[in-house]
Nucleic acid binder design. Structure first.
Length: 408
RNA sequence: GCAGGUGUGGCCGAGCGGUCAAUGGCAGCAGACUGUAAAUCUGCCGGCGUAAUGCCUACGGUGGUUCGAAUCCAUCCGCCUGCACCA
């Protein structure tokens, strides 16, 4: 199939997206850029207070990278001003104001993480306080005049709350305005975000038009479900894979993703084409390939990209060793405990070794046959161990908690 | 300001004088089955405790009534809704 450069680029950028509004404008912007050699400006906003990125964030970051690969310029916008307002999406609390130092600290943390994926040369990190701080009251009034209450209430979240007679604080309306004004200030060609951001992104379009600018194209990517397979990935739900997770841990977490969800991960977290992914899926369905193998490949790909192919290979071997062969991990935490008498209660030992968080938990683990000492199951809650200086014990609780304990 | 409502374990949510460390659901943990997948089944799920009808802490805070309070009363605080006020 003969496709033009433009069509190829368009398909590349559109992959995995939910909305591209309007598609024709993206096409014409790309076309113009191709012709003139002038890169597009693509903006994505990030919360200044949560600098721990996870794979859910990387969906849009990867999309930013796609633009970079085609030569465009990306703005990683830290919403230090809008952070004060608190995005009403989902939550309603106003956030505490961060200090200048905290914001800069967070920005550095972001840099460390995003440059695993983005090209620093083509990335601008910016802060929206730079222009939003400068707006005066009159400017805000003028800005607010450009959007009607009815338009605001089109936003799902607002409408539902309004209908349910839940409170909507007035300042919440300022968030979309401020975010939209960012696009005006930066004269964005494209703004991207999760599907939950659609309304805010469209306000940006509206405000740009109101300011006599060519409106930005809006692109949304799906929210990625976390490891539980149900809720969207988030730190507070604990169902996330952090960008900075160690290779083995990251690999393991990815292996616990359900078979069904795996395909979405393939689509949104790798550069494989939809065509390839469909092929793999068909193979799995036909029994040609084992889903676990395909998932290992997924895990390797993701770890390989966020760490290195070598680290991915190592993580895979370690995974197979610990979980498939049921062998011991190559690295087991060493714990040295002071000797107090020559007998020790196993439950206490587990607790001091950091394997159980409380004595009660330790007893529970023992009772449920989850504890091994030197490879043998011990299920007597009252079990005592002979200990002496220099003795070395291997403790294990469940499948993944290990410790080598020595005494001194 | 006035009136009404509400505040329970990581979350949701029962309980409304003793049998409540508190029903149920979710999440979590362990075990079985496995591919650390899903589904399913079993057990656990505040802490302390080598046992106990045991002890400590906990139902927004404080004080009180009672032999006994998550449950009743007073007061304070937070949240929600409505009304009022708005030079």
């Amino acid at each position: 199939m003969a496709t033009t450069e433009l069509e190829k680029q368009f398909a590349y950028l559109e992959k995995g997206c939910v909305d591209v509004i309007p598609r024709e404008e993206l096409a014409s912007k790309l076309e113009r850029s191709l012709a003139s050699g002038r890169p597009l400006t693509v903006k994505v906003g990030f919360d200044p207070s949560a600098p721990d990125l996870h794979l859910g964030h990387t969906v849009v970051i990867r999309k930013m990278r796609h633009f970079q690969q085609l030569g465009h310029r990306v703005v990683f916008l830290i919403g230090d001003f809008t952070g004060l307002i608190g995005d009403p999406t989902g939550k309603k609390a106003t956030r505490p104001q961060l200090t200048r130092e905290e914001i800069e600290e967070n920005a550095r943390t972001y840099e460390r993480q995003i440059f695993k994926l983005l090209d620093p040369e083509k990335t601008t990190i910016d802060f929206n306080s730079r222009w939003l701080d400068r707006l005066r009251s009159a400017d805000w009034v003028r800005l607010a005049a450009k959007v009607t209450v009815a338009q605001m209430l089109e936003r799902d979240d607002f409408r539902k709350r309004y209908e349910a007679q839940q409170p909507i604080a007035l300042h919440e309306f300022l968030y979309p305005l401020a975010q939209g004004y960012d696009s005006v200030a930066l004269e964005c060609d494209v703004e991207m975000g999760g599907t939950d951001q659609l309304f805010n992104l469209l306000v940006g379009r509206h405000l740009m038009r109101e300011h006599g600018l060519e409106p930005q194209v809006v692109m949304t990517v799906p929210l990625l479900e976390g490891l539980d397979g149900v809720e969207k990935m988030s730190k507070s739900l604990g169902n996330y894979v952090a960008v900075e997770d160690a290779p083995f841990e990251m690999f393991g977490k990815l292996m616990s993703v359900s078979d069904d969800l795996m395909w979405k991960y393939w689509l949104l977290l790798t550069d494989h084409t939809e065509h390839d992914i469909k092929g793999m899926r068909a193979d799995v369905r036909a029994g040609v390939r084992h889903p676990m193998e395909v998932k290992k490949e997924l895990a390797s790909t993701v770890v390989g990209e966020l760490h290195s192919p070598g680290a991915a290979e190592e993580a895979r071997r370690e995974f197979e060793r610990v979980f498939s062969a049921r062998d011991l991990p190559t690295e087991i935490p060493e714990v040295c405990l002071p000797l107090e008498g020559n007998v020790m209660l196993l439950s206490k030992l587990l607790c001091s070794a950091g394997i159980a968080s409380s004595n009660s938990e330790a007893r529970r683990l023992i009772q449920q046959r989850g504890v091994k000492v030197d490879g043998r199951v011990v299920d007597d809650v009252k079990a005592e161990l002979q200990v002496s200086a220099g003795l070395r014990l291997l403790l294990q609780a469940g499948k993944r908690r290990f410790a080598n304990v020595t005494f001194s």
